[in-house]
Design a protein around this nucleic acid. Structure first.
Length: 573
RNA sequence: UGGGCGAUCGUCUAAUGGUAGGACAGUGCCCUUUGGAGGCACUUGUCUAGGUUCGAAUCCUAGUCGCCCAGCCA
């Protein structure tokens, strides 16, 4: 089992039962025909530590770990760390944290950099076999010699150096004799191949850079193509899943393995995850962070797993989303509503309710005995009786939501307005009597009367009300900052930009709204980091990492579905 | 205009020669002490044109459209 706890195991096997896809079919067939003999199914999740994992990676992680698990196999976490200029320990750490948070535990923790010595030996082997050569052409010249999509390339003038000369030069490349960019080691394949990846691909480049793990030990670094397949092979990976853009690399992946005569790992490609209104490119996410369009990799508006965690999303929901959305070889874009649906569905079942007034409006109950207060009993989660109940203080002066009162109610508005009766959730029926306005004419308080016989929320005479609103007693309320998040981008496809534009043009200027002084029921004072709640009638919220006992901060994970907002919008149109 | 990959409701995905199904979104109704949740119902789809076949989303042929590839990135 690759899962960390029994809870996620249950979910995992449930997902596994329903997850039938072409990758599953391929592996099942390989197992049936004993393609790898007695060997276990072995997979790997191979991130480059050059950024934080995002929800697109979650799909790959669920596939890599989930498929291996289904067939009783194992999964390694392998850092594809062959480019010291872009990789950092911070990313190595965050990736491990995020994979575990998602609910998976790897069999072996590996690094491509651990294989540098072996890769180097194999390069020597290929040189000796006349299958690799040192090229002195500049990067620019190599590009020119490569030809184009429609024209074949031509051989480098250095292509036919002797084995001895190649060996000598390559060893000296490794020993640091030559400056960056002066020489590369190339595979000798076919400069006329219609597949550009086969036109004598670069195997090694000279990079006098400090690597986050090997330090200054190496000044030559293998390219992805030369490192990835062999790393798979070393780990006896049987099924190496990757995204579609690597399809053209598969012949090269196989070429290295065949020339070296090593364990025949096989690469299988699947489609990358795309989600509407969401940017899933590590390079561009890095730009958002570096240029401070967001407050870091874990800014809750980001699509990174760290951000989803901070925002209150659950690993269970992300896993359910990943498997439900399926896997194929088509390039599609999944509606963000799908993700939100699975998250609401999960939170609705598991999370306790609380009352919080985001935009407070004072409500005075004129006939409530002066100075009196009482406690009303409230279910912690109506979906789950086992969650129990709690006592919430009530009094003659409470906060209600500004949105829940209209002096002139529009059609189909069921909430409070002058003369109308509504229910205060779990408390009493009230009828609005009058409003108090300030000098500018805006409403600062509403006066009402309550029906003492309706305690608990029902009137003994069977009288019905059209609406129930939430509230917090002013004397008992605690204050908190609340952060409301909206889509980071305005367009379904953030990359849909005009000529010369950038994704930044599509940034939503209102993606973050901060409410400095929301009023919460007192039980919330005990909330701890990452605790999740449904604020009734409002949405799902969690305690943010910026929160302190003196200054509580809550993030809105997602709003509740809002039928009234829909009606209102439709009537405006 | 070289090569590779792909095309099924608005979106994602099943059906592997035999009733085109599910989920999300949408719409309507019911229910409701959250206009939440839940229940019921409805709408919409096999890229096109030929062919094989008793029968084609599936096989064949030709086209159309989309994505990927010319890093010493991964």
């Amino acid at each position: 089992m690759t899962n960390r706890n029994s809870e996620s195991q249950g979910i995992q096997s449930q997902e596994a039962r329903t997850a039938s896809n072409f990758l599953h079919d391929i592996i099942a067939e390989d197992v049936r025909t004993r393609k790898y003999g007695d060997a276990l199914v072995q997979t790997r999740f191979p991130p480059e530590p050059n950024g934080y994992l995002h929800i697109g990676h979650a799909k790959a992680i669920c596939l890599d770990f989930g498929l291996a698990d289904e067939f009783g196999g194992k999964t390694n976490l392998r850092f594809d760390d062959t480019n010291p200029e872009k990789e950092e320990q911070e990313y190595v750490d965050s990736i491990q944290r995020d994979v575990r948070w998602l609910g998976f535990e790897w069999d072996r923790l590996c690094y491509a950099s651990d294989y540098f010595p072996q890769l180097y030996e194999w390069a020597l082997e290929l040189i000796k076999a006349g299958k690799a050569y040192v090229d002195d052409l500049s990067a620019d010249q190599i590009r020119q010699y490569r030809g184009t999509l429609t024209e074949p390339g031509k051989d480098s003038p250095f292509r036919n150096r002797t084995v001895e000369e190649n060996l000598d030069l390559f060893v000296r490349m490794k020993s640091g004799e030559f400056p960056d960019g002066s020489r590369v080691l190339r595979a000798k394949i076919d400069m006329t191949s219609p597949n550009l990846n086969m036109r004598d691909p670069v195997m090694y480049r000279i990079l006098h850079a400090t690597h986050h793990r090997t330090g200054d030990e190496w000044c030559i670094y293998p390219m992805y193509d030369y490192a990835h397949g062999q790393s798979d092979s070393i780990e006896h990976v049987t099924h190496s899943m990757c995204t579609l853009e690597f399809t053209d690399h598969q012949p090269l992946y196989r070429w290295y393995i065949e020339q070296l005569g090593i364990f025949p790992s096989q690469q299988i490609e699947f489609d990358r995850l795309n989600i509407t209104y969401t940017l899933l490119s590590k390079r561009k996410l890095l730009q958002l962070v570096q240029e401070k369009h967001v407050h870091g990799w874990d800014d809750p508006r980001m699509p990174t797993l760290s951000a989803f965690r901070r925002r209150g999303f659950t690993p269970e929901a992300i896993r359910t989303f990943s498997t439900s959305t399926g896997v194929s070889r088509t390039n599609g874009i999944t509606d963000i509503e799908m993700l939100e649906h699975f998250q609401r569905d999960d939170l609705n079942r598991r999370v306790n309710r609380a009352m919080a007034v985001l935009r407070p409006l004072k409500l005075v109950i004129d006939n409530y005995p002066a100075g009196q207060e009482e406690f009303v009993e409230v279910a912690n989660n109506p979906e789950d009786p086992a969650a129990g109940t709690r006592q919430v203080p009530f009094s003659g002066e409470i906060y209600m939501e500004q949105d829940d009162f209209r002096e002139v109610p529009p059609p189909k508005y069921y909430r409070l307005s002058p003369g109308k009766e509504v229910r205060l959730r779990n408390a009493y029926f009230i009828t609005a009597q009058s409003v108090v306005k300030d000098a500018t004419g805006s409403i600062v308080a509403v006066h009402c009367t309550y029906d003492p016989a309706s305690r608990g929320g029902n009137s003994p005479d069977g009288r019905k009300v059209k609406s129930t609103i939430h509230w917090v007693s002013t004397a008992h309320a605690i204050s908190a900052e609340i952060r409301l998040y909206d889509k980071l981008f305005l367009k379904p496809d953030p990359n849909d930009v005009e000529e010369g534009g950038s994704v930044l043009d599509n940034l939503n200027p209102n993606s973050l709204e901060v409410l400095a002084d929301a009023k919460l029921e007192p039980s919330l004072a005990n909330a701890k980091l990452e605790d999740r709640f449904q604020f009734e009638r409002v949405g799902y919220f969690c305690v943010d990492s910026d929160s302190t006992p003196d200054h509580m901060v809550f993030n809105r994970t997602l709003p509740l579905k809002d039928t009234w907002a829909k009606i209102e919008k439709k009537s405006e149109a």
